[in-house]
Computed example of a mutant assay.
Amino acid sequence: MRLIDALHRWLGGLIGLLLATLGLSGAILVHRRAWIMAPHAGDAPRQTTEAVAARVGQLMADPATRPQMITFADRDFGLDRLAYRGGAGAYADQAGTLVARWSSQWERPELWLLDLHQHLFAGETGETVVGVAALAGLVFVVTGLILWWRTRRMFTFRLWPKRMSRPAVLWQHRDFGIVAAPLLLLSLITGAVLVFRPLSAVLLGPDAPRTIAASLEAPPSRPGRLAETLDWPGMIRVARTRFPDAEIRSLSLPRKGNGLITLRMKQSWEWLPNGRTTVWFAADDGHLVAARDAAALPPTTQAYNLLYPLHAAEVGGLPFRVLMTLSGLALGLLGSLTVWTFWFKRPRVKSPKRVRKQADEAITAAEG
Rank of each mutant, 00 (worst) to 15 (best):
F140R: 01
V141E: 01
V142E: 05
I146H: 11
I146K: 00
L147Q: 03
W148Y: 12
R150E: 13
T151L: 10
T151K: 13
M154N: 14
M154T: 14
M154R: 13
F155M: 12
T156K: 13
W160G: 04
K162D: 15
K162I: 12
M164E: 11
S165I: 03
P167E: 06
A168L: 01
L170V: 04
W171R: 13
Q172P: 04
R174V: 09
D175N: 13
D175M: 00
I178V: 15
A180S: 14
P182V: 07
P182L: 05
P182G: 03
L186S: 02
S187D: 11
L188G: 07
I189W: 13
G191K: 04
P198C: 01
A201C: 03
V202A: 02
L203I: 08
G205P: 14
D207Y: 09
A208W: 02
R210T: 13
T211K: 00
I212G: 03
I212P: 01
I212A: 04
I212Q: 02
A213C: 02
L216G: 06
E217C: 00
R222I: 03
R222W: 01
P223M: 07
R225K: 12
A227F: 04
T229D: 11
I236Y: 01
I236P: 11
A239P: 05
R242K: 11
F243A: 04
P244I: 07
D245E: 15
I248W: 03
N258Q: 09
N258P: 11
M265W: 09
W271V: 07
W271P: 11
P273M: 06
N274S: 15
G275Y: 01
R276N: 14
V279T: 15
W280L: 09
